[in-house]
Design a protein around this nucleic acid. Sequence first.
DNA 1: TAGAGTATCTTTAGTAGTAAACAAAGGAGT
DNA 2: ACTCCTTTGTTTACTACTAAAGATACTCTA
Lengths: 403, 403
Amino acid sequence: MEMAAMRTDANRAAILAHLGARGPASRADLARALDLSPALLTKLTRDLLADGLLNELEHQPSRGGRPARQLGLASNAIGAIGLKIAPDHLTLVEVGIDGVVTRTSTAGFDATDRLALRSLVDITTGFIGEGDHSQLLGIGVGLPGSVLGQSEDLVDSTQLQWNQVPLGSALRSATGLPVLIDNNVSALALAEALYGVGRGHEDFLVVTIGSGIGAGIVANGAIVRGHTGNAGEIGHIPVVENGPLCQCGAAGCLEALIGQAGLMREATARGIVIGGTLADVTALADGGDHDAQGVFTAAGKLLGRAIAGVVNTLDPQIVVVLGEGASSWRHWSRGFEPSFRAALIPRKRGVEVAVEAWQDDRWAQGAACLVLGTPFDATGVSGEQGERIRTRLTEVRDTEASA
Amino acid sequence: MEMAAMRTDANRAAILAHLGARGPASRADLARALDLSPALLTKLTRDLLADGLLNELEHQPSRGGRPARQLGLASNAIGAIGLKIAPDHLTLVEVGIDGVVTRTSTAGFDATDRLALRSLVDITTGFIGEGDHSQLLGIGVGLPGSVLGQSEDLVDSTQLQWNQVPLGSALRSATGLPVLIDNNVSALALAEALYGVGRGHEDFLVVTIGSGIGAGIVANGAIVRGHTGNAGEIGHIPVVENGPLCQCGAAGCLEALIGQAGLMREATARGIVIGGTLADVTALADGGDHDAQGVFTAAGKLLGRAIAGVVNTLDPQIVVVLGEGASSWRHWSRGFEPSFRAALIPRKRGVEVAVEAWQDDRWAQGAACLVLGTPFDATGVSGEQGERIRTRLTEVRDTEASA
DNA sequence: TAGAGTATCTTTAGTAGTAAACAAAGGAGT
DNA sequence: ACTCCTTTGTTTACTACTAAAGATACTCTA
């Protein structure tokens, strides 16, 4: 038992995370993927095998040379918790290190309540349960807002009406686990980068259509959060002059026009529904109502022009459309596609737009990826909490070894 | 004389580049700035001092402890060449490793000529001169267009009417020097990051107002080039529906409205000038002509709304306005400021806008920074040519040592 | 069936880097 | 003057990693 090496070992963590995320691989595969020498992989995998964290699987049929010995993760008990905070409910998931959701839970919640933080902590600890947390690497939290400061502690959110809420320290002291908090769209973008369509792309854009319009930006392989953590607010791109007033105070924001509220105002103005919800409009459009479809087509047209501006600015390889609204995408699409393509610079006109089927717990899964993605983060920018996660990953090794 | 260590030594290079860019510093300063251990700095600076590349300067007055020994660059002969390519002329500069321009030259040039590449190479080699190039780290090239492929070899530019021109290999074989090519606005952004207003900022935006409108984007401390190298094309953000036709084929692009051509069209339509150039309109505005000023005010208003969208999307800490057009910024500003601030999300409303005085050779200086910035590039993404530059930096050490 | 070829893994010898203890050179309080 | 404090720079002992050469285990070809 080595007494030394209490330090974080990013490479051991990276090996485990890679095997978890991408499935079994040979030492040579890992060396190439992680950009390490084969020699080092021999040594590191020897340790991990001895510690019982890795298994040597069957030989792979030779591809012209010595056949590869596949290595697989022995412990599938390593995972993370993902928490999505919405104004009126919480979604919790437990995911394995391969990104697969193993458990889900939803709970009512009032973000504006005086005891909201207390209630959130209780619900979370209840979900995690008593007993042994040694397999959990940490908790990832996604919320509609931004995180202040390097300590990633104080949270701001207009949608939740939160101002400098000490969410991080509250969860941390209650659970003893590392906690990473981020904007929910950024978390979703990270999930796409690790396990979704974005995998292997250095530059892509995730557009979410929900109650508002948001974007997760990945450039140079990294999430763009901006200086104050407010990057991705494409809902507030000005699109029409003297347009309807937006929550943000400006006039003519994209979101004011085609956010859920904007769509309803338009549907009501056109006399398609009286009262009712957006689901009613969607149902009408699905049923073939041309007027209802027209609402989405017009919205798609505006969205297309706005996203084209973003694509011209950022030059992503792919645009992923996601969110509750994506389920009615075929109505949006009629307006989106022509106006989007027409406004792109010629070289980008073929850029791929991928629409992903939407599951509700996807947000929480994305939040969990904040934790699962940390070992991949070569630059180690995730700060102190990220350091703690990497440390935990190697600690798991020690407890397994001693057991 | 060590026979070994033919490998690139990024840290030795980083020490030299840091001293060049930021001026003399103590070993302890360097250790903090480069995030290396004091122990390593003792060793590396010992080598560099022995090789005659560094000088030990006077002691710094103590700040409560042992006084620091300042280290300074012994050789100020290390530098790079910067080349800016415009449709009708070339600008060349020689800059020292501290970013200061030591020599300038401009030459007429026709980018559409059949022998343009040959002529470009001749002018460049003429500027560099015969004889010893050992002090030159490399050549940086900035052009209005994008670079294809990882080899950074083939160049595309609609403005120059170039299609897959093998600029890199041509310059490389003619001079024997490493050549780095990039979009001119990206190069300018890099210069700002290293020696300008952007220094110390991880996220900022450089907006250029020239014949067109462009942007250099820095996010997470790195230049955003996008997947095809076409990031920053904010000139083609759609701003008005059914607007004037743009060169790019779309209608209502920002550039079509407020690029040089757009401004002239507007000035002509308003009857301010008949024929003439933009300089005439600027002169009238400078002289107090309200109609002429109105052209700029209207343009500033449009620019403000568009840039606000970009700032909402990317959340930069600072916006730098630059370029030929920046000299008439006080006329733009009247329209820009109110519309810009009004369209920002509340949290970003105080974002700083810095307008930089404009010198013509600034573009070429930015191009040179592609070379000078390479040693700083911790991730080493600049590819093979960047590797060659870092190698050259240590080679200089060897030749100085043997001399 | 005996190479030739090729890809995987291992060993060896060496470099780059760090932490920690120590030495050096001053300032500030008593 | 003497001690304590602070910061700088150096030495020592160690870890992490790599390159290069070799060992291993297969396929393919003649």
